[in-house]
Simulated assay, not measured.
Amino acid sequence: MKLSASTHEQLTQWRRHLHAHPELGFEERATSDFVAERLTEMGIAVTRNIGGTGLVGTLSAGTGNRSIGLRADMDALAIQEIPGRDHGSQNPGKMHACGHDGHTTMLLGAAQHLVAHPEFSGTVHFIFQPAEEHGRGALSMIEDGLFERFPMEEIYGIHNMPGIPVGQFATRPGPFMGAEDNFEIVVTGKGVHAARPHSGVDPIVAASAIVMGLQTIVSRRIDPTRPCVVSVTEFIINGTRNVIPSEVRIKGDCRSFLPEVSAAIETEMRRLADSIAAGYAASATVAYSREFVPTINAAETTEASVRVARRVLGEDAVDADCPLRMGSEDFAHMLARVPGTFVNLGNGAPGTPGATPLHNPGYDFNDEIIPLGVAYYTALVADRLPRGA
Rank of each mutant, 00 (worst) to 15 (best):
K2V: 14
L3W: 00
A5W: 02
E9M: 05
Q10D: 10
L11V: 05
T12F: 03
R16G: 05
H19S: 08
P22T: 05
P22F: 08
S32H: 10
F34I: 10
V35G: 01
L39H: 06
L39A: 05
G43T: 11
I44H: 02
V46M: 06
I50Y: 13
G54M: 07
G54F: 10
L55G: 11
V56D: 06
G64I: 09
D73A: 10
A76K: 07
L77A: 15
Q80I: 15
R85K: 15
H87V: 08
Q90S: 11
K94T: 14
M95E: 07
H96S: 07
A97E: 07
G99D: 05
H100P: 07
D101K: 06
M106W: 01
Q112T: 02
S121H: 00
A131R: 07
E132A: 04
E133M: 13
H134A: 12
A138F: 13
L139S: 02
S140K: 09
S140N: 08
M141E: 03
M141I: 03
E143D: 15
D144V: 03
R149Q: 14
F150E: 10
F150L: 04
E153D: 14
E154W: 10
I155W: 07
P162R: 05
Q168F: 02
P175A: 14
M177Y: 07
V186R: 14
T188C: 02
A195Q: 01
R196F: 12
S199N: 15
I204S: 03
V205A: 13
A207I: 01
S208Y: 05
V211G: 07
G213L: 00
P227A: 09
E234N: 06
G239K: 00
T240S: 14
E247S: 09
E247P: 03
K251L: 01
C254V: 15
S262L: 07
T267C: 09
R270V: 06
R270P: 00
G279T: 13
A282Q: 08
S283D: 11
A284C: 01
A284K: 00
A284M: 11
A287S: 04
Y288I: 07
S289P: 13
V293C: 04
P294D: 14
A298S: 15
T302M: 00
T302E: 00
S305R: 01
V308C: 13
R311C: 07
R311N: 14
L313W: 11
G314V: 12
E315W: 05
V318P: 05
D319F: 07
D321F: 13
D321G: 12
S328A: 11
E329T: 03
E329R: 02
T341E: 03
N344Q: 15
N347T: 00
T352L: 12
P357C: 03
P357M: 08
H359T: 01
N360A: 02
I369S: 02
I370G: 09
L372Q: 04
L372D: 12
V374D: 05
A375R: 03
V381K: 03
L385M: 10
G388W: 01
